[in-house]
Amino acid sequence: MSPENSTPRDVSFPDHADVLVVGAGPGGSAAAAHAAAAGRDVVLVDAAVFPRDKTCGDGLTPRAIAELDSLGLGSLVADRPRIDGLLLNGWGARQQVRWPSGRFPAYGSAVARTEFDDAVRAHAVGKGVRMVQGAKAVDVTMDGDRVGAVTFSAGGTTHTVRVGDLIVADGVRSGLGKALGREWHRDTAYGVAARAYAPSARADSHWMGSHLELRGPDGELLPGYGWVFPLGGADGGAGGGLVNVGVGALATAKRPAHMALRPILEHYAAMVNDEWALGGPP
């Protein structure tokens, strides 16, 4: 990992940003990199200090591979597993389903979120994006029907940045989005998830495991799904010989998912233990 990836390269808060991107996950960092490549003066701000982890992620679809190529980051997955598709399981059936062919590559991959997010962020910084870490967007000042400035809280003080264009990319529970009037539409499906990493003899598999029929320890059918993402490196290379084992639950406001995810994750890991040759508990 390069020093740029492992050491924050914060800048002092600027007074103005041509393009201000709030949220330095893959979406925000990619948007910042593209804006900088187009000649815009870009400031990227995140409440976290990188590298940081996220529960959901790691698996990269062919669309994500295409986006990495367009960013100039295709080499990030050069030594990762080439994922040809999904190994779907459910209701007594199993099917290998290749990614659809078309304008995207015919393969996906997987990279741990801690590494992946920081790599995309560092790439944006390398394109000239100014990065501020550990600062949370807390308010906006409107200029007519446009955002004129964004106020951040960091280290017990506040900083206000005037903006030309604003990109809000800080997640579904965005405080900034709420300040702008955005609502979390819980009447539509949303998900919660838990995952763990486990050593596996199949960390270089070309298939992502997916269970569409998720059952609990007592056999009851649950409103969710399970997955296994091979991260590569079974031979000591990148990925560390690990797989991402996780479960997710789908819910709506009317039908919340009352699931204790940790015991379900442990049960699911035990269920796929033999197939994926897991070398230890999650």
Rank of each mutant, 00 (worst) to 15 (best):
218 D>F: 03
129 V>I: 07
35 A>E: 07
271 M>I: 00
37 A>K: 15
246 G>P: 13
142 M>H: 11
230 P>C: 01
208 M>A: 10
234 A>Y: 04
64 A>F: 01
202 R>S: 10
44 L>H: 04
252 T>I: 11
188 T>N: 12
187 D>F: 11
231 L>G: 09
30 A>P: 14
150 V>I: 08
131 M>Y: 06
208 M>C: 09
111 V>A: 12
240 G>K: 14
61 T>Q: 07
176 L>E: 02
248 G>S: 08
107 Y>P: 02
214 L>C: 13
66 A>P: 09
113 R>T: 06
172 V>N: 03
146 R>M: 06
169 A>W: 00
86 L>R: 02
116 F>K: 09
23 G>C: 04
249 A>W: 03
262 R>C: 01
42 V>T: 02
135 A>H: 10
87 L>Y: 13
193 A>Q: 08
55 T>K: 01
198 A>G: 11
118 D>W: 01
15 D>F: 04
179 A>N: 07
136 K>Y: 00
274 D>M: 04
210 S>R: 00
116 F>D: 11
161 V>H: 10
99 W>N: 01
235 D>H: 14
245 V>D: 12
62 P>V: 08
70 S>R: 15
199 P>K: 03
39 G>M: 07
16 H>W: 14
94 R>V: 12
160 T>S: 12
29 S>R: 07
135 A>N: 09
259 M>C: 14
49 V>K: 07
146 R>D: 13
48 A>K: 13
96 Q>G: 01
211 H>F: 10
157 T>C: 01
277 A>E: 15
173 R>L: 10
256 P>I: 09
167 I>S: 00
250 L>V: 14
61 T>V: 10
39 G>N: 04
187 D>W: 12
204 D>G: 09
241 G>Y: 14
121 R>N: 06
173 R>I: 01
37 A>Y: 00
186 R>D: 15
60 L>V: 05
164 G>S: 08
113 R>H: 14
237 G>A: 05
78 A>Q: 13
188 T>W: 09
195 R>V: 06
101 S>N: 01
94 R>P: 00
268 Y>V: 08
146 R>H: 14
205 S>A: 15
263 P>K: 13
